[in-house]
Design a protein around this nucleic acid. Structure first.
Lengths: 222, 222
DNA sequence: AATTCATTAAAACGTTTGTTTGAATCATAC
DNA sequence: GTATGATTCAAACAAACGTTTTAATGAATT
């Protein structure tokens, strides 16, 4: 056998992936050296290049490993909603929950590494590494397309462009809620030391409030 | 004279700052080398260490240069509101505009570099570089404290902790709207090619909708 | 015209970077 | 037991990193 996560071979591989995930989250891609990764994973320096080929391919695999599952779970939740609705439009709040709620539940999994990964993911949205961005776009394409279509159907009276904007805003609010260390946290001192289960309901209510907010008056069309 | 931005000396200094600002935004701190900065600024390699001391002090100065003005403008806007109100509570929407609208107006200034800087700032909120974070906390402290106090006064019926959460969410939505390159932009292809003046009214309405959204039911207090 | 001090310039400093090499080690199949 | 193929290991590679050094240049002061 050659590549698939076999019995023993998978050990080194996943030790590397786990170590890289945490370090990328803490120090960024450029701020994390191969030696940091391999020493944290307690493997030989050459192991990364042997198992993954290069640092960039390792980065790619760190994302692929979790993102595939996340977006599968999102699509499965959407499938359920659409099956229940039988062609009828779905409540926007349930669509939003299928997309963002699923991510939040992954982020609530601290021990399994889901939280670490969601922090990394949120952080990566603003890391303009061309290589990673292209990869994320491909991984997300199908999922985003289907959810947008569902929202268009759920909100037929709202212009599609507006829905796009609001989805973008929701993305931002969620990513920051998970990954951000903004001036607030810095000034007030992380106020989410308490259990992260507090985050989900609060964020969902905020997102829905924003989504439903009256549209801005057109203003001078300029 | 020694340090102040004199006649000729300021030229090299600000050329370095301008170059660094763009490069940090595009490639991050670790992804931007001294040679990239100095060659873009068309100055000698040693110039950064001569004028700023080190790379980290340069980073600090890139932020200080613009952040001081931004937060001064925010506080000035809040001063106006409070003077107009004469001790009476202020409408939350006006407080939100004084804080986020001011930032959005800076971000709308593309030619003067305001847009570049706001992208960099949003990106930095998720860059856990300890050095930069500490610096941002100090720069923001007074401003955030005064705006939170104003919001507490404007929304006396809402628990303070909830206001904190929502401020955090608003921070995230705005930063991403400016700096984020999430799956949406990646999939739909940047949809903000049009003038960035479209962003401000849409985001403000989203933020206010989220801020006013009914609070999440307490749920199982756990 | 000579002196002084801030600035720029070119070259080199020692580290650290990602990657590669070739031998050692291991488990499995014959 | 011997051979085979995958994996681990220590060591080295050139390239790039941030920083320092020393000399040249510039403009102002004496």
């Amino acid at each position: 056998m050659s590549e698939p996560a076999g019995k023993t071979t998978g050990d080194t591989r996943s030790r590397i992936l786990d170590a890289a995930e945490v370090l990328f989250m803490d120090h960024g891609f450029d701020g994390t050296s191969m030696r940091m990764i391999t020493s944290r994973a307690a493997v030989n320096l050459a192991a990364v290049n042997y198992h993954f080929g290069s640092k960039e391919l390792l980065i790619q695999e760190v994302f692929r490993r979790r993102l595939t599952d996340l977006n599968k779970a999102r699509l499965a939740a959407l499938d359920v909603l659409e099956a229940e609705a039988c062609e009828a439009p779905i409540k926007p709040s349930r669509i939003v929950d299928a997309f963002f709620g699923t991510a939040l539940r992954m982020a609530a999994d601290v021990e399994g590494g889901g939280h670490t990964f969601m922090c990394l993911l949120g952080r990566t949205y603003t890391e303009p590494n061309e290589f990673v961005r292209q990869f994320l776009a491909e991984e997300y394409a199908e999922c985003v397309e289907r959810f947008l279509a569902a929202l268009y159907r759920a909100l037929p009276e709202v212009e599609r462009k507006e829905i796009l904007w609001r989805f973008h805003f929701m993305m931002g609010a969620m990513s920051y809620a998970i990954a951000g260390t903004d001036a607030l946290q810095l000034v007030t001192g992380k106020f989410d030391d308490e259990d992260p289960s507090q985050l989900a309901p609060r964020l969902m209510s905020f997102l829905l409030g924003g989504l439903r907010s009256p549209l801005a008056e057109a203003g001078p069309p300029k």
